[in-house]
């Protein structure tokens, strides 16, 4: 087992003064919050103590109803993200490689980018209904732009000498794309994903706010109606866990596929 490096890393994290201070602040804040609500300085029905929120989260994570909500939201995020990425990457590549496509499509892209995508979400509910499809569409739409813009930058950023090299060794356009242009664009695509992942959670939740039968967003709305504040907090922290997990996955991908790029240093932090 690789116990030594992991152990030493943990030891390093635990002895870092910044980390210690950060932990102290967290504990202090939780204590003030807990005591403040417990002894009635703040009404518990407005702001429940952290212990109650933690207990609620434990109940939620084992409840089949909430599990279904979580599963629904994660499905919306992953499918929407995948579709948005496919569309963004392929259109981005086409724009970067074919000047005609760029000329035709780019003005529309620029115009659509100025529209706050969330503002269009009610329309999509009208068109695609209250089911999972409308949320997938909203997530897709909201993830599409950051991935597209980064894909264009990535596919345009190819080193002309690398292209000349491929020409010399007799590579065709497809080989040049697969062996040079695509791997070269990966750090940019990952940068796009980093933004898209954050937006995808927002997109799914807002979509569910507007009308849904399942999902963590609709869970929040249901609990809001019941004035169950600890339940809202629990749902919010569950969403935050989903976001953190996605962010961590992108970080892992960056470490594996973009380790060679200078920008990956920023991606790894």
């Amino acid at each position: 087992m690789t116990k030594t490096p992991a152990g030493s890393r943990l030891a390093r994290l635990a002895t870092d003064p910044g980390n210690i201070l950060s932990l102290v602040c967290f504990v202090a804040l939780m204590t003030v919050w807990e005591l403040g609500t417990r002894y009635g300085y703040v009404a518990a029905y407005l702001l429940p103590p952290p212990s109650e929120i933690v207990a609620q989260m434990a109940r939620d994570l084992t409840s089949p109803v909430v599990q279904r909500d979580i599963f629904t939201t994660i499905s919306e995020i992953l499918i929407g993200l995948a579709l948005g990425a496919m569309l963004g990457i392929s259109l981005g590549a086409a724009i970067a490689l074919f000047p005609l496509v760029e000329k035709v499509v780019w003005p529309y892209i620029v115009t659509m980018q100025t529209i706050p995508k969330i503002a269009v979400a009610p329309l999509i509910i009208i068109w695609a209904g209250f089911g999972i499809q409308s949320k997938i569409l909203i997530v897709m739409m909201i993830c599409f732009f950051p991935i597209l813009v980064n894909a264009v930058a990535g596919f345009k950023g190819t080193d002309s000498r690398q292209i000349l090299l491929m020409q010399i060794i007799g590579a065709n356009a497809w080989q040049t794309f697969v062996k040079v242009r695509l791997p070269q664009a990966v750090p940019f695509l990952i940068a796009g994903f980093r933004i898209a992942v954050v937006l995808s959670v927002i997109g799914a939740v807002v979509g569910e706010f507007l009308g849904a039968t399942h999902g963590v967003g609709s869970l929040i709305i249901r609990r809001q109606a019941e004035m169950k504040v600890s339940g809202v907090f629990s749902a919010v922290f569950i969403l935050s866990m989903v976001g953190l997990t996605l962010n961590f996955a992108v970080k892992l991908a960056a470490r594996k596929y973009a380790f060679w790029a200078e920008t990956s240093n920023q991606l790894n932090t």
Partner: peptide, 11 residues
Amino acid sequence: MVFQDAVLLPW
């Protein structure tokens, strides 16, 4: 062909 820079693919 050999260029002034090695032009190796960094990945």
